[in-house]
């Protein structure tokens, strides 16, 4: 059965740029556009992987959602879903990046602009873990 991927990003063009190679690679893709709708979609769709943007309704919405899904107090079901964070080398938030369990509990990063080949490689890597 094809893996389900949930994209949480408020930029429809980025969502489209992610959706095209993912669907072409055979994944079932859904999307949400805010922290709140993203959290609802996670429970409804029960994705195998989440692609999460950092800045949405607020500059740190992605970080906050990652904390809710994988941080202290998160359910085992949420913790089991790997998160690939969409980021920029020059992230313009006051927060520092790092795939550190303690304060940014995500499994990997993918840089914007997204290179489709690299996106597929990263997704395969995370789904194999």
């Amino acid at each position: 059965m094809a893996h389900k991927i949930l994209i949480i990003d408020d930029d429809p063009d980025v969502v489209l740029a992610l959706r095209m190679p993912l669907e072409s690679a055979g994944y079932v893709v859904s999307d949400a556009h805010s922290q709140e709708s993203g959290l609802k979609a996670v429970d409804q769709i029960k994705p195998d992987l989440i692609i999460l943007d950092v800045m949405m309704d607020t500059h740190t919405a992605g970080f906050q959602l990652a904390q809710k899904l994988h941080g202290p107090g998160a359910t085992e079901e949420h913790k089991a879903i790997p998160i690939l964070m969409l980021t920029a080398v020059h992230q313009t938030t006051p927060l520092r990046f790092s795939p550190d369990e303690d304060y940014l509990p995500v499994e990997g990063f993918i840089e914007k602009p997204v290179d489709p080949k690299r996106l597929i490689t990263e997704i395969k890597k995370l789904l194999q873990k």
């Binding site: 930029d11 063009d13 980025v14 740029a17 920029a88 914007k112 602009p113």
Partner: peptide, 16 residues
Amino acid sequence: RAPLAAGLSLMKNIEQ
């Protein structure tokens, strides 16, 4: 940056 990154992501889809 944001529109540029989105535009470039789409262009890379076309390129690939």
